[in-house]
Amino acid sequence: MESRKLKVLILTALIAAICVIGSFIKVPGFLATSALDSAPAFISVAFLPPVYSGLAGALGHLATSMLSGFPLGSFHFIIAAEMFIIVYLFNVLHRKSYNIIKWIFLIVSNGIGSALPFYFLISPAFFFSAVPSLLIATIINAVVAIIVLPAITRVFKREEVCNE
């Protein structure tokens, strides 16, 4: 395996592991799976390609749901797929230097949009109950990423690790 690809895989595994650690830090609210599991995936856009950042975000959610006892059952696989797509697109926006749009996209898509399928799959009451805690958890994860991302970006630009 070539050196660059190995670095990307190792960094992806490390970010996924940090997402697992973040999943232990719960955000109180209606959803038992709201936690600080997304921030590492959001930060990984500084040095991982979009697919790998998305994968780390999906694995982070699955870890959080496992630690919470899978309260939504198999629906957590839908949420993991949503996390993959959201983090993937956030990474693409970051790479294209859409600095304000990427944060708006992240907060709206993760804080509100990710709950939208459950309006139809579970109930409107579930959706309206889930959005406040999901939005708060998303904002907290985004604030952590906003604080850390500039420093991480500078470090990885200097080191030229995993940049496409």
Rank of each mutant, 00 (worst) to 15 (best):
N163P: 00
A39V: 02
K102L: 11
D37I: 12
S53A: 15
I25M: 07
V131C: 09
T64F: 00
V155A: 13
F128P: 00
A80T: 15
F126N: 03
Y52V: 06
G29M: 14
I25P: 00
F105D: 06
V87S: 05
H76D: 13
S109G: 01
I15S: 13
Y98P: 13
P40D: 09
F47L: 14
T12Q: 04
A115R: 06
A81N: 03
S53M: 02
I43K: 00
A39H: 03
S114A: 13
H61M: 09
S133H: 10
K102T: 00
L106D: 08
L106G: 08
G111F: 01
E160D: 13
S65I: 01
S34Y: 00
V45A: 14
F30G: 00
A16Y: 11
F24P: 00
Y119W: 11
T33K: 03
H61W: 04
G29A: 13
V155S: 07
I107E: 03
L11Q: 02
A130F: 02
I140F: 14
N110Y: 05
K5I: 14
S74T: 15
P150V: 13
F128K: 01
P28L: 10
I15D: 12
L116C: 08
D37E: 10
Y119P: 04
P50G: 01
L36A: 11
I21K: 05
V144D: 04
V27D: 00
A39E: 03
I107C: 03
P117D: 07
A145Y: 07
L6M: 14
I147R: 08
R4S: 11
L116E: 06
A46R: 04
P150N: 13
E159Q: 15
I140D: 12
C19R: 02
L59R: 04
V20H: 03
V143C: 03
N110W: 06
V27Q: 00
N163D: 11
P71Y: 04
V144T: 04
V92G: 12
I85T: 10
I18S: 09
W103S: 08
L59F: 13
G57K: 06
R4L: 12
I146P: 01
G29S: 11
L14C: 08
K7A: 05
V27H: 00
P28I: 08
F127R: 10
R95T: 01
V161W: 11
V161I: 15
V8S: 13
F84N: 06
F70R: 04
W103T: 09
V148C: 01
